[in-house]
Amino acid sequence: MIGLEVQAVSKSYSAIKVVDRVSFSVPQGEFVCFLGPSGCGKTTLLRMIAGLEAPTDGHLFLNGKDITGQPVHERGFGMVFQSLALFPHLNVADNIGYSLRLRSGNAKLRAERVEELLELIRLPGIGKRAVSALSGGQRQRVAIARALAQEPQILLLDEPFSALDAKLREEMQVEIRQLQQKLKISMILVTHDQREAMTLADTILVMGKGEIQQMGAPLDIYRNPSNTFVAGFIGSTNFLDVTVEGPGLVRFRDKTIAVGAIPEALTRGQKGVLSVRPENVELSNGGDGGLGGVVTFVRDVGASIETHVDCGGLEIVSLSSSSQAACPAVSDKVSLRFQPDACRVLEP
C-alpha cells in the first residue's frame, strides 16, 4: 500500500498502557486527525510514527516497508511541534534551511528553496529576520515551512495551533488545509479540539483510553457516534437513559420515543442510552404529547438560541436558529420532541 500503515501498535510505560493495539492506515495524500482528550495517547501515537518513541509492540509500515526500528533522522517525516521549537540561534532562513543544510552543501540552491518556501507560506523576504522578531502566526508558518523543506511524504503536527488566539487559529486551519491540498502530501494532526478536527480532516480517529474509539469521516462520526464516549466528545449532545421497547421505539420514563436504528446487541427490555444533538430537539408550547419540562436558561446569541429545559431532574438542551418560532422565556412550560432520524441509541 502507498502510505502509512500502523499495525497493532502499543506503548506501555512500566505498567501503564498508553496506547493499546492501535491499527489504521493513512493513504497517500490524506489528512488524518487524532482527536481525543488529554492523556488519551494521541501524542504518544504521533511520536511513535515520527520515531521519537519506540513502540512496545506492533509494526509501522511506509509504502509496504517496515520502518518500526528505523531511527528518526532516517524517516524524513516533517514534524511541527506544539512549542514550534524554532531554533533561537538561527534566523528564519537558516531555520527553514536546516534540513537542506544537512543534506547538501549547495548554498545557492538552498537559498532558492528557502525563498520558495517563504513564498508558499506567504511571508516572502523575511529570511534575514531573527526568530524572536516574528509574531505568533509568523512563527507558526515558519515552523510549517521548516518541516516541509525536506519534502516529507508525511507531515506530522502535534497540536500546532494551541498557542494561537481563536481568530488566528481558524485562519491557520484553513491555510494548512489549503497547503495540504496543494502539495498533496499526507498530514496527521493531533488535537483535542473537535472543531479543528472537523475543519481539517478527511478522516478523524477518535481516541480514548489509549484505544481508537471510532474512525471515519467527520460528519459520519458526528451523526453516527459508535458509543457514548464519541457522542459526548464530538459536539455536544443530550443523553437519556432509555429502555428498548421494540423496533424503532424506546421508552423514557412514561414516554415512548421513536428513534432510528437500534443496535442489534440491544433487544427488547434492555437498557440503552439515547443520544440526541441539541439541534435535533424541537421545542413547542406543550399539549402535543412531547416530553414536558420547564425552561431554566436561554442563551440567545443572535444566530441561534440555546434553551435549557429541566425535565424532571434531567436537563435537556435544545438549539434552534433564531428565525424559528418565538423563543420561550425562563420558567415557561414547554414540550420537547426529538427528530427520530437523528436519535441514536447506544449501548450504555
Binding site: R75, F81, S83, A85, Y98, R146, Q150
Partner: peptide, 27 residues
C-alpha cells in the same frame, strides 16, 4: 532548553551527534 528543539532537529534528518553540535552547543 526545550527538548523539542533536539527532537525537531532529529526529524529534519540530523543524527544525535549532529543535533548536539548544531543545536545544543550554539544555543
Amino acid at each position: 532548553i526545550d527538548p523539542q528543539m533536539a527532537e525537531a532537529a532529529r526529524t529534519m534528518g540530523a543524527t544525535p551527534a549532529r543535533t548536539f553540535f548544531t543545536i545544543i552547543v550554539p544555543i
